[in-house]
């Protein structure tokens, strides 16, 4: 289980591969990997977005993410979990969040990764401020339910 907060851009594929290589004991043991990647878009609520600043509460972020991963591990037989979240100044097309879950069977991987993402969205203390093309700045006021 690994939780990382990154102040610099990260490459999700390198993060996953690095994690798989360092967790050698997993080879041959896992049958399913479910991965979610959230990426910054260049538009939101009808406006062109130039960039974004992601603020967080250092310490609480890690504490809440550890709790969320532990909850998932109690509900599904997960072999390993990797969570990476970006903070700081972000540009369109930058990855913001990566959740990867390794399990024996696919249903558990899908369920656990989705649980972690939904819980992260509602409980991990991150806040996004968008910089619009018009130069206006605005704080996002709430997270969506994932469908809007």
């Amino acid at each position: 289980m690994d939780i990382k907060i990154c102040a610099e851009p990260f490459d999700p594929w390198q993060e996953i591969q690095g994690h798989q290589h360092s967790a050698n004991n997993m080879a041959g043991k896992f049958g399913a990997t479910s991965i979610f990647i959230g990426t910054m878009r260049d538009f939101n609520e009808g406006d062109d977005v130039k960039g974004m600043t992601l603020e967080h509460y250092p310490g609480m972020t890690e504490k809440q993410l550890e709790k969320i991963v532990a909850e998932a591990a109690r509900q599904w037989p997960v072999i390993d979990v990797l969570v990476v979240h970006r903070v700081g100044d972000i540009l369109p097309n930058d990855p913001i969040v990566l959740v990867a879950v390794w399990t024996s069977h696919r249903g558990d991987a899908f369920d656990a990764s989705r649980y972690i993402m939904e819980a992260l969205k509602s409980r991990a203390p991150f806040w996004k401020k968008e910089l619009l093309k018009s130069q206006a700045e605005r704080w996002l006021e709430k997270n969506t339910d994932g469908y809007s």
Binding site: Y57, I96, A124, P125, F126, W127
Partner: peptide, 26 residues
Amino acid sequence: NMDYVELNSAVKDGDEVAFFPPVTGG
């Protein structure tokens, strides 16, 4: 101390209390 609480929770010496808007990560 980095756990969510209700406003009627008691605080004790040395506690770190934080207030913030709804979170928007992910």
